[in-house]
Design a protein around this nucleic acid. Structure first.
Length: 507
RNA sequence: GGCGCGGUACCCAAGUGGUAAGGGAGAGGUCUGCAAAACCUUUAUGCGUGGGUUCGAUUCCCACCCGCGCCUCCA
C-alpha cells in the first residue's frame, strides 16, 4: 500500500506521488517569533516532523523549507515595548524556538528561511503582481486585487459572493478597493521599521513571505505545504492567489492542515490566554519526550484534547515501551528462535507501516507496537522468548522510533545541555524554605525535583549504594535494603530487582 | 448563515457492513523477602439522538441535538 494523505485542496484522501521521482519538496509554516511558541504550535510542528520522517522512512529524499516570520504587527509591537530593534528582539525567540525544537526532537529542516532576509525577493514578486495587474498601489501600500484571481477561495471553499453576516470586518487602517483585498506591502509608518525597496519604503504583508520563500527554495510548483487549520484562510488562500497569479503555474499539489490543540473545550491560543509554552510544562516537571509522545499520539486531523493528565498518561505509556526495550536488551534468553513471535513482529511492523501510510494514523501505529509488546512480554515471562528473537524486535522498535523519536530517555541530558536544569536548581534553592508536599500527583514539580537530584547524584555513587544494598539483602537485612532503596527513590533513582540483576533508572 | 473537525468505557483514543484496537486509571490474582517491572482476569449487548436501507449498522443514507474551529490576529 502506498502513502495516502488528505489534501485540503481536493477535500479527499489521495495517493501521494511526488512531482519529481523520489524527492519530496515541502514547505511548512513555522513560528512567528514575537514570543515563545506554545504547545499548540508545537502540535503542528510535531505533525510536520512526523510527516517528514515518514517520507524519509519511505525512502524519499526530503527537501523541507520552514519559514520564520520575524516581521509582523506583533513582533513590531513587542519589540517596541521591549525597547529593542526588531532584529534584536526576534533573535531571542528564534533561539528559543531552536532550543524547543531540539528538546522535542524535531528534525532540522533543510532550509529555515527568515522573512526579513527576503525583503528584496518579496518586493520583486509584488512588482510582478503589479505588472500583471493583480496588485495595485494605494497611498504607498500595495494590495492584491482578489477580484482578478478567479479561483480565489478554492482552498478554503469560502463563498465570497456578498458579505457574510457575522464575518469580521477588517480592522486594518489601509485603503483597499475591495473588502476582500489584502495587503502585500504596507507603507512605512512613523515609529515602525521599514525597508527601502523599489516599491517605496515599507514592510511586507504577512502572506507574501511564504509565496516568496517557498518558491525561491522549492520552485514555482512543489509537493507539500502544511500548517495549522487556522491558516487555511486567509493565509494559504492568499499564498495561492499570489503565487499562481505571479507564475501562472499551480503552486502546491498537496495541502495538509492539522487540527488544533483544545484546552477545556477551546482552542489553545495566545489571545485566549489558555496556553502553555514548552518551558511552562518543563517547569511543571513534564518531560519533553512525554510531551512529544502526547502530541504525536493523536492523528493530525483530529482535535487533540490537552490536559496535564494526558501528559502523565503519555509518560506512563512511554515508560512501558522503554521498560520493554530495556528488558529486550538486557535480559538473558535461551538460545534459538520462536517462529510465532517473529511472525508477530513482522505483522506488527506491517500494521505500523500501513497505519502511517493511511494519512499518518499515529494512534493505530502506536497500538500495533503495544500489542506486540504485550505478546513479547508474555512470552518472556513464560520463558518462550529466545535469544534469536531479539534482533527482530529491536529492529521493529528502532523503525518505530525513527518516526516517533521518543524511546531514548535523554530528557535530562538535553535539559541540562540547554541550561534548564541549572535554572531550576537555582529556583529550587531560593524556594527551599517552602515545605515540599511529596504527593502522588503527577507533574506538580516534585517529580522534577527528584529528577534534578538524580542528576546531581553521580552514577558511581548510585552503583555503590546498590552494591551496599545487595550485601544487606544477602545478609537478610531487608530493613537496611529497603532504606537504601527508599533513599535512592527520594533522590530520583528507581531500583528494580530483576532476574538479571538490579536495574536502576532515573525517575 | 457558509465551510470544516468531532461526539466510542472512569480518562485518552483507533476502527470495521458481520458484531467493539491500543494506552492510562481502578479492582482481583500470579511472580517477588517486600516493592517495582511483567503477566493473567476484570471494567461499552454498547459506539450523541431518532428514523431508513440491509439477513445484519457503531460503520451506509436522512433528519435532528451537542461541542469546537475558520469565515481577513491566529499552528
Amino acid at each position: 500500500m502506498s502513502l495516502r494523505l488528505y489534501n485540503t485542496l481536493s477535500g479527499r484522501l489521495e495517493e501521494f506521488r511526488p512531482l519529481e521521482r523520489n524527492q519530496v519538496r515541502m514547505y511548512t509554516c513555522g513560528p512567528t517569533v514575537y514570543d515563545y511558541a506554545h504547545i499548540g504550535n508545537y502540535r503542528t510542528f510535531v505533525f510536520q516532523d512526523i510527516l517528514r520522517r515518514v517520507f524519509k522512512y519511505r525512502g524519499f529524499e526530503v527537501r523541507h523549507v520552514m519559514n520564520v516570520t520575524d516581521v509582523d504587527d506583533r513582533t513590531i509591537r513587542n519589540a517596541r515595548a521591549a525597547g529593542l530593534e526588531l532584529r534584536d528582539y526576534t533573535a531571542k525567540y528564534i533561539e528559543a524556538f531552536h532550543v524547543d525544537r531540539q528538546l522535542l526532537c524535531l528534525e532540522t529542516p533543510e532550509v529555515i528561511a527568515r522573512a526579513t532576509d527576503h525583503i528584496d525577493d518579496m518586493a520583486a514578486l509584488i512588482q510582478t503582481l503589479i505588472d500583471k495587474g493583480y496588485a495595485y498601489r494605494a497611498e504607498g501600500s500595495v494590495y492584491y486585487r482578489v477580484e482578478k484571481f478567479k479561483e480565489y477561495g478554492k482552498l478554503s471553499k469560502i463563498d465570497f459572493s456578498g458579505i457574510r453576516p457575522g464575518a469580521r470586518v477588517d480592522s486594518d487602517n489601509y485603503d483597499k478597493a475591495d473588502a476582500r483585498d489584502f495587503v502585500l506591502w504596507k507603507a512605512a509608518k512613523e515609529g515602525e521599521p521599514f525597508w527601502n525597496t523599489p516599491l517605496g519604503p515599507g514592510r511586507p504583508g504577512w502572506h507574501i513571505e511564504c509565496s516568496v520563500m517557498s518558491m525561491k527554495y522549492l520552485g514555482p510548483t512543489f509537493d507539500i505545504h502544511s500548517g495549522g487549520s487556522d491558516l487555511v484562510f486567509p493565509h494559504h488562500e492568499n499564498e495561492i492567489a499570489q503565487s499562481e497569479a505571479a507564475t501562472g503555474k499551480p503552486f502546491v499539489h498537496t495541502w495538509l492542515h492539522s487540527e488544533h490543540l483544545i484546552v477545556n473545550g477551546e482552542k489553545m491560543s495566545k489571545s485566549l490566554g489558555n496556553f502553555f509554552t514548552l518551558r511552562d510544562l518543563i517547569a511543571k516537571g513534564f518531560k519533553p519526550t512525554a510531551i512529544r509522545y502526547l502530541l504525536a499520539s493523536v492523528p493530525f486531523r483530529r482535535p487533540l484534547n490537552f490536559t496535564f493528565d494526558g501528559i502523565h498518561q503519555a509518560q506512563q505509556s512511554l515508560d512501558r515501551l522503554r521498560n520493554f526495550r530495556f528488558r529486550l536488551t538486557m535480559e538473558k534468553f535461551p538460545p534459538g528462535e520462536t517462529n510465532e513471535l517473529q511472525k508477530a513482529a513482522v505483522k506488527a511492523r506491517q500494521t505500523f507501516e500501513e497505519a502511517l501510510d493511511d494519512n499518518l494514523n499515529t494512534a493505530e501505529a502506536l497500538g500495533a507496537v503495544f500489542s506486540l509488546v504485550r505478546e513479547a512480554n508474555t512470552a518472556m515471562d513464560r520463558g518462550e522468548f529466545h535469544d534469536g528473537d531479539r534482533p527482530v524486535f529491536l529492529d521493529l522498535l528502532e523503525r518505530w522510533d525513527r518516526i516517533f523519536a521518543v524511546l531514548d530517555d535523554n530528557d535530562y541530558a538535553r535539559l541540562r545541555q540547554f541550561g534548564f536544569v541549572q535554572e531550576l536548581e537555582a529556583a529550587l534553592s531560593h524556594s527551599s524554605a517552602r515545605p515540599q508536599a511529596d504527593g502522588p500527583a503527577a507533574g506538580t514539580g516534585d517529580g522534577h525535583r527528584a529528577s534534578l537530584m538524580a542528576e546531581s547524584l553521580p552514577e558511581k555513587e548510585i552503583q555503590r549504594r546498590i552494591s551496599e544494598r545487595e550485601t544487606a539483602r544477602r545478609r537478610g537485612d531487608f530493613a537496611r535494603a529497603d532504606l537504601i532503596r527508599k533513599e535512592l527513590l527520594e533522590a530520583g533513582v528507581i531500583l528494580e530487582d530483576t532476574k538479571s540483576g538490579v536495574r536502576w533508572k532515573r525517575k
